[in-house]
Amino acid sequence: MWASWNWLGVACWTLVVIILVFVVHNIRQRRLKMLVTQRRRFSWPNFLLDMLLIVIVAAGFGGMIYATFLHSDTVTDKSAIQLEYRYRALVLQTRDGQGYFVRVHNGSGHNPIQTYTYWTQGAKYQINSPEATISTGKTIVPAEAAAYPWPTKTLAKVDQSTRSAFVATVKATYKNTPFNGLGMHAGRPASYHELIRLPSDVFVYIDNPATK
Rank of each mutant, 00 (worst) to 15 (best):
M1A: 09
W5S: 06
W5V: 00
W13P: 03
V24C: 14
M34H: 12
R39E: 15
F42G: 01
S43Q: 12
W44P: 03
L49C: 05
A59P: 05
A59M: 15
G60F: 02
G63M: 10
L70Q: 12
L70F: 14
H71Q: 10
V75A: 13
D77Q: 09
I81A: 09
I81T: 07
Y85I: 04
R86Q: 12
R86E: 13
L90K: 03
L92H: 04
G97K: 00
G97V: 01
F101Q: 00
V102T: 02
V104C: 10
G107R: 02
G109W: 00
I113Q: 07
I113N: 03
Q114A: 14
T115M: 02
W119G: 01
T120P: 01
A123P: 05
K124G: 10
Y125G: 00
E131D: 11
T133C: 05
T136N: 04
G137P: 08
T139M: 11
A146R: 12
A147D: 08
A147N: 06
K153G: 01
K157M: 12
K157C: 06
D159V: 14
Q160G: 09
R163V: 09
S164N: 15
A168R: 01
K171N: 14
A172L: 03
T173K: 05
T173A: 03
G183Q: 03
A190L: 04
L195V: 02
I206W: 14
P209I: 09
A210P: 13
T211W: 05
K212Y: 08
